[in-house]
């Protein structure tokens, strides 16, 4: 259940930004979660519900963008969509694939109010 740690990190990060601008409330939180980031999004949503309690994010609308996986073959350079961490390159069959999209765990933006 590392999703709870992730949720707490999201709240801490957003609150730090909001505090720095002397905001009193975070109205909206926009996050990007890669489908291959190792985070279960349903669990994360549930963990966030608890993590925002008694914080500036308590009433925040959460906008989540799920980012699809994309790999680049280290041998032939092909770029392709991937749903796992071990899909071989569709062009040459190599497993030396670097994930270039889908591992995101980012707070993209917040909407604050004073």
């Amino acid at each position: 259940m590392h999703e709870l740690s992730i949720a707490q990190s999201i709240v801490a990060l957003a609150e730090a930004q909001a505090h720095a601008r002397q905001a009193s409330i975070v109205e909206e939180l926009e996050i990007e979660i890669g489908r291959l980031a190792g985070v279960e999004v349903q669990t994360l949503a549930f963990a966030l519900e608890s993590a925002v309690k008694n914080t500036m994010l308590e009433k925040a609308r959460i906008v989540r963008h799920d980012i699809e996986g994309e790999g680049r073959c280290g041998d032939c350079g092909a770029v392709f969509a991937t749903e796992t961490l071990f899909t071989p390159c569709p062009r040459c069959g190599s497993y030396a694939v670097k994930l270039i999209k889908g591992a995101e765990l980012r707070v993209k933006s917040i909407v604050i109010d004073k």
């Binding site: 957003a14 601008r21 109205e27 996050i31 765990l105 917040i110």
Partner: peptide, 14 residues
Amino acid sequence: ARTVLTVEQDILQR
């Protein structure tokens, strides 16, 4: 005083 703040930070940054 509603403001949109671009954050663009990794959640695991800390």
